[in-house]
């Protein structure tokens, strides 16, 4: 299945229109974007991820992520199995931003897992925010209001996936915005735009033409920590049971 191509066809007219408006200096009128018509998620195909770090770098540049903190990162899992006993090694040097050194160890199961905010429908982080400074938008994106956040860090504690951090200068919680400034203008996220293998695909679950529906129907797709029932919308294809 050629997702990128189909995706591209879906997004193209809206994006072209958006770009014209951006050039005209009026991003707010870029598209007739209605929050009620979208429900955003993402598909990550572990079998396609090569751990190049393009997504991490793109995210840092697009969103001015402070050094040492990550809105998205890549983990490398290395699973050794001896007599039915698994040992697990995981690393993520600089969030996988500069790729990974090869281990070249034979007999080890190795793979990369890109991580980011799961944009949970029943998000435990927004649940605990005392003031409504972090919230799920009507189109299913979990955002932080920088001008309203107290910096109490309760949301950081409540996120099971380690996706949030306190911005060291702004002293407010920060996280992946699913490039809300891009997707509301018909563009895809910076990480998806820059993934060379199409391992990441932005998905609009309310758009019947989005290839995500076909993919979900025909693949065994899993989310992270499903037992926590967070309503995660970051769908993984080929997710190993060892991944936490």
């Amino acid at each position: 299945m050629n997702m990128t191509r189909r995706h591209f066809l879906v997004l193209l007219p809206a994006a072209a229109l958006a770009w014209e408006n951006i050039l005209a200096g009026a991003p707010e009128t870029a598209t007739n974007y209605h929050t009620s018509e979208h429900w955003w998620g993402m598909l990550v195909d572990i079998e396609k991820c090569i751990g190049c770090g393009s997504c991490v770098r793109a995210c840092q540049k697009e969103n001015n992520v402070p050094d040492g903190y990550y809105r998205t990162w890549i983990e490398r899992y290395r699973i050794k199995e001896v007599n039915g006993v698994e040992t697990l090694e995981v690393d993520s040097p600089d969030g996988g931003m500069n790729g990974f050194p090869s281990s070249n160890e034979p007999g080890v199961k190795e793979f990369f897992v890109p991580k980011m905010c799961n944009h949970c429908a029943d998000s435990p982080c927004t649940q605990v925010c005392p003031v409504g400074a972090t919230f799920v938008t009507p189109d299913g994106v979990v955002l932080v209001d920088e001008k309203y956040c107290l910096g109490c860090r309760y949301c950081i504690q409540a996120c099971p996936y380690g996706c949030r951090f306190l911005h060291p200068q702004k002293n407010v919680a920060q996280k992946c915005t699913l490039c809300y400034h891009r997707i509301t203008q018909g563009l895809t996220t910076a990480c998806c735009e820059n993934c060379p293998t199409g391992a990441r695909q932005l998905a609009d679950l309310k758009n019947p033409k989005d290839p995500i529906h076909e993919f979900l129907r025909t693949h065994s797709v899993q989310v992270l920590k499903p037992h926590l029932a967070t309503g995660a919308k970051l769908f993984y294809n080929g997710l190993d049971g060892a991944v936490r």
């Binding site: 605990v128 925010c129 005392p130 003031v131 409504g132 956040c149 910096g151 109490c152 702004k170 002293n171």
Partner: peptide, 19 residues
């Protein structure tokens, strides 16, 4: 992180938050 905003807890308390 922003002590000056703590009064927001009285202005717009989030009902689902224990805090």
């Amino acid at each position: 992180g922003h002590p000056e905003r703590s009064f927001e807890m009285y202005l717009t308390p989030h009902r689902s938050s224990a805090m």
